[in-house]
């Protein structure tokens, strides 16, 4: 499937939160690849480590979180080995980040225009004329009247703020955009229109996207590939269609049963019994076994490796044949 070298290759990445009771491994040995122009969705419930994984990839973790092992190769360079000063020059120009809530991610005391200008000036000297043209261009890209360059974040609606942040992320036409639930603060209608717009921009500009969300039905319409995370690990990864239509891992199956399908027949929503494990003492063997409906004796002791299915990789003993 991936022909050229991947834009992003994460290998065995682990993140620890250092607490008084010891290190909590929030992300455990995650490996994934994102090809040029590919849209990778990462889904999982709250607290599964998906946002931590994302910020680890972007090298934006702050104490008490720290990368414990693994590498993040972006365009062939290992970002884990880079220091802040080296990172500064790669940031935004080559990969940018869109955060969950633009309300909190935009500086409340600076206009949108001033914050865009800051980002441009940090990476290349440009005349104010050029900065303005560039800013107006990206604002139009996301469908906001450039007049709002003079607005402060609190003067915009939630949807506009989110768009403004995406505009900011696209100002250098980066190769990779890392998105942390950029639509979760919006209502369903605004969510859908923003997703369509992100997808459209991706097609036009050609950036690769890593998109984290808890909303599987939302991302399934837009992503090329889907990774499902549970308790800090990826449990299933594959083409979106294949994961969505034929989920392999019992956890993915559970996720699929916990939201309604509009077009399909009326079914009772099942959900997943139990709650995510305490990462301070993760369960032995397969991390999902205490909640798994098809648990087998070996699941309690033996951690499953990835088993290769035709279109998927799945971390479950059921597929050991």
């Amino acid at each position: 499937m991936v022909v050229t070298a991947p834009v992003l290759a994460v290998d065995g990445l682990s993140v620890d939160y250092i607490t008084d009771r010891g290190a909590v491994r929030a992300v455990d040995g995650v490996s994934l690849e994102v090809a040029k122009g590919e849209f990778l969705g990462i889904v999982g419930e709250s607290g599964c480590g998906k946002s931590t994984l994302l910020f680890a990839i972007a090298r934006l973790l702050s104490p008490p979180a720290e990368i414990a092992a693994g590498s993040v190769r972006f365009r062939g360079r290992d970002m884990v080995a880079m220091d802040e000063d080296e990172l500064r020059h790669v940031r935004w120009r080559d990969y940018s980040v869109v955060m969950q809530s633009a309300m909190n991610a935009l500086n409340p005391v600076m206009t949108i225009g001033a914050q865009l200008k800051d980002a441009i000036e940090a990476h290349e000297p440009a005349s104010s004329q050029k900065i303005r043209e560039r800013s107006e261009h990206v604002m139009r890209l996301v469908g906001i009247d450039p007049i709002h360059l003079a607005s402060y974040p609190h003067q915009l609606s939630g949807g506009m703020r989110q768009r403004a942040m995406i505009a900011m992320a696209l100002v250098f036409s980066p190769e990779l955009v890392i998105m942390d639930e950029p639509t979760s603060a919006l209502d369903v209608v605004a969510q859908r229109s923003l997703m369509l717009q992100i997808k459209e921009l991706q097609r036009r500009i050609g950036f690769a996207a890593v998109f984290v969300t808890h909303d599987m039905s939302l991302v399934s319409h837009f992503s090329d590939r889907l990774a499902v995370m549970y308790a800090g690990q990826i449990v299933e990864v594959g083409a979106t269609r294949s994961v969505f239509e034929d989920p392999k891992h019992p956890y993915t199956k559970g996720l699929m049963q916990s939201f309604p399908s509009i077009s399909g027949p009326k079914e009772r929503l099942v959900g997943i019994a139990g709650s995510p494990p305490d990462l301070l003492q993760p369960p032995a063997g397969c991390r999902f076994h205490p909640r798994c409906p098809s648990v087998m004796p070996r699941c309690r002791t033996e951690e499953p490796p990835f088993y290769e299915e035709p279109a998927d990789l799945v971390r479950c003993h059921l597929y050991d044949r």
Partner: peptide, 22 residues
């Protein structure tokens, strides 16, 4: 600890600018 400080880091701004302006 605010998100906009993290965002400023993500933008690759100089530490001095982040400290004073953000």
């Amino acid at each position: 600890a605010e998100d906009y400080v993290k965002m400023a880091r993500a933008k690759g701004l100089s530490p001095v600018r982040i400290m004073f302006m953000y």
